[in-house]
Amino acid sequence: MVHPVLIVGGDASGWMSASYLKAAFGDKVDIHSVESKRLHARQDRAPGSAPTP
């Protein structure tokens, strides 16, 4: 049985979580991630800093 997994957020923690789950569970999980385009639209912020409204 394949279990669906949804990861909300795609920055470093989201991608690391997806990588870990795939390595740990292999073909037993179907992983999808959702990212907000709005959070990545600002190019003037430093990587890793919180977005400003």
Results as ranks from 00 to 15, higher is better:
1 M>D: 15
1 M>P: 09
1 M>Q: 06
1 M>Y: 08
2 V>E: 13
2 V>R: 14
2 V>N: 11
3 H>W: 08
3 H>C: 15
3 H>P: 07
4 P>T: 04
4 P>E: 15
4 P>Q: 14
5 V>R: 06
5 V>T: 09
5 V>H: 05
6 L>I: 11
6 L>R: 12
6 L>S: 13
7 I>P: 00
7 I>W: 03
7 I>L: 07
8 V>Y: 03
8 V>K: 05
8 V>G: 07
9 G>I: 14
10 G>V: 11
10 G>P: 02
11 D>N: 13
12 A>P: 09
12 A>Y: 08
13 S>N: 12
13 S>H: 11
13 S>V: 15
13 S>E: 14
14 G>V: 01
14 G>I: 00
14 G>E: 08
14 G>L: 06
15 W>K: 15
16 M>P: 05
16 M>E: 11
17 S>D: 05
17 S>I: 06
18 A>L: 08
18 A>S: 15
19 S>Q: 15
19 S>T: 06
19 S>M: 12
19 S>H: 09
19 S>Y: 04
19 S>I: 07
19 S>R: 12
21 L>D: 06
21 L>M: 11
22 K>N: 08
22 K>R: 14
23 A>L: 15
23 A>R: 14
23 A>F: 10
23 A>N: 10
23 A>T: 06
23 A>V: 13
23 A>G: 14
23 A>P: 01
23 A>I: 10
25 F>L: 04
26 G>C: 03
26 G>N: 09
26 G>M: 07
26 G>D: 13
26 G>W: 04
27 D>M: 06
27 D>A: 14
27 D>F: 09
28 K>S: 15
28 K>R: 11
29 V>R: 00
30 D>W: 03
30 D>P: 04
31 I>V: 03
31 I>A: 01
31 I>F: 02
32 H>V: 02
32 H>P: 04
33 S>K: 01
33 S>D: 00
33 S>G: 10
33 S>Y: 06
34 V>S: 14
34 V>A: 09
34 V>N: 06
35 E>C: 05
35 E>H: 03
35 E>I: 01
36 S>N: 05
36 S>H: 01
37 K>L: 05
37 K>R: 12
37 K>P: 02
38 R>E: 09
38 R>L: 10
39 L>D: 07
39 L>S: 09
40 H>S: 07
41 A>M: 08
41 A>K: 01
42 R>L: 00
42 R>C: 00
42 R>Q: 05
43 Q>V: 00
43 Q>C: 00
43 Q>K: 05
43 Q>E: 12
44 D>Y: 02
44 D>K: 07
44 D>S: 03
45 R>E: 03
45 R>C: 03
46 A>D: 09
46 A>L: 10
47 P>T: 04
47 P>R: 07
47 P>V: 04
47 P>S: 12
47 P>I: 12
48 G>I: 01
48 G>D: 04
49 S>K: 03
49 S>A: 07
50 A>H: 07
50 A>G: 08
51 P>W: 00
51 P>K: 07
51 P>R: 04
52 T>D: 15
52 T>C: 14
52 T>M: 13
52 T>N: 11
52 T>Y: 13
53 P>A: 10
53 P>Y: 05
